[in-house]
């Protein structure tokens, strides 16, 4: 009995002697995650309580309606309902137009017969990803200006009327989606191009012997090869359907299009950080996070039912 204990203890001591430095290293990032990711979660209870500046979240009094007062208030708030609609609308358009774009571009690049030109195209197409939304908004404001912008100058010279790309709600929505594609389409091809290199080249050799043309190759070999990647990214995109970026709508919006550009993140910024309505905006944030998790889990389950690998 005593002998086994000493062996165990010796094993523990040896283990610690070997690995103590790893725990010291890890303690710093773990402390980071606890302080900056997990402690904020304890502040979520503010969503169910009346915020008070002098009390800690644990001491604040519960809100009315069994604690759901602020959730009810949010859903009676027109600004929030518009923000919810706009978030869903913009994310939905991003999904149906922005999601296929990199797949198509990756297929194009894959079919491109000139390797040096392919590398040049890639280099240039990745570049917009490194520009901030403020810079892109600056470029867009110059390019799409109603009278002096390059695009409208061309339209006018061709005899067309100017298009208010950024100053009319309907046009703004499509400019917003287009600029999103412009920034990310090249960058998002990287993951697909990486997946393409994993396709067995013998498949193409066999199809060449069978006399398959380009379209048949794409349809029967390339796209099936991309299938797992497409599904993984689709799950993640569906999980993000109610998440809202801040930088992009904030940088691109202007007073003329507030009716479509105010998304949830901007609502939280205006009502919470500027308006100090902390309980209401914490409730909105919690609603958003929970819906995101639900969508992610549901999309993952659905993908697995269709025989895909899923993300976990």
């Amino acid at each position: 009995m005593k002998g086994r204990l000493t062996i165990n203890r010796r094993r523990v001591i040896n283990y610690l002697r070997k690995y103590w430095s790893l725990y010291v290293m890890l303690s710093i990032p773990i402390a980071y995650f606890i302080i900056f990711r997990y402690i904020p979660m304890t502040y979520i209870q503010i969503a169910f309580k009346r915020y008070s500046i002098v009390q800690s979240p644990w001491e604040m009094p519960w809100a009315g309606d069994n604690g759901f007062e602020y959730f009810i208030k949010a859903f009676r708030n027109l600004d929030f309902l518009y923000a919810l609609r706009n978030t869903l609308l913009l994310n939905f358009l991003d999904l149906i137009m922005g999601f296929p774009a990199p797949i198509i571009l990756a297929l194009l690049l894959n079919e491109l017969a000139f390797p040096r030109f392919k590398r040049l195209t890639q280099s240039v197409a990745y570049l917009p990803h490194f520009l901030s939304w403020i810079i892109i908004a600056g470029l867009a404001k110059q390019l799409f200006a109603p009278t002096s912008g390059l695009i409208n100058i061309f339209l006018n010279r061709l005899g067309f009327q100017s298009i208010p790309f950024l100053n009319d709600p309907t046009h703004w929505v499509f400019t917003y989606v287009f600029l999103g594609i412009w920034r990310n389409v090249g960058w998002n091809t990287i993951i697909y191009l990486a997946a393409l290199t994993n396709i067995n080249p013998e498949l193409y050799e066999a199809s060449a012997i069978d006399g398959a043309n380009r379209w048949q190759n794409i349809w029967y070999i390339t796209l099936p090869g991309l299938r797992p990647t497409i599904f993984t990214l689709l799950i993640l995109s569906l999980g993000n359907i109610l998440s809202s970026e801040f930088d992009r709508p904030y940088a691109l919006s202007n007073p003329l299009v507030n009716s479509v550009s105010n998304v949830i993140s901007i609502f939280v910024y205006r009502y919470g950080i500027r308006g100090l309505q902390f309980s209401l905006t914490t409730a909105v944030g919690l609603f958003q996070s929970v819906v995101c998790v639900i969508f992610l889990v549901a999309a993952n389950a659905l993908a697995k039912r269709f025989g895909e690998r899923g993300i976990w």
């Binding site: 502040y43 979520i44 909105v284």
Partner: peptide, 22 residues
């Protein structure tokens, strides 16, 4: 345990205001 703890923060975040108050 550490892996799970770290990955969880990728999928669930407390939101802007709890971070602001922290």
């Amino acid at each position: 345990f550490f892996n799970t703890m770290i990955l969880f923060t990728m999928y669930f975040s407390a939101g802007t205001i709890p971070h602001y108050l922290l």
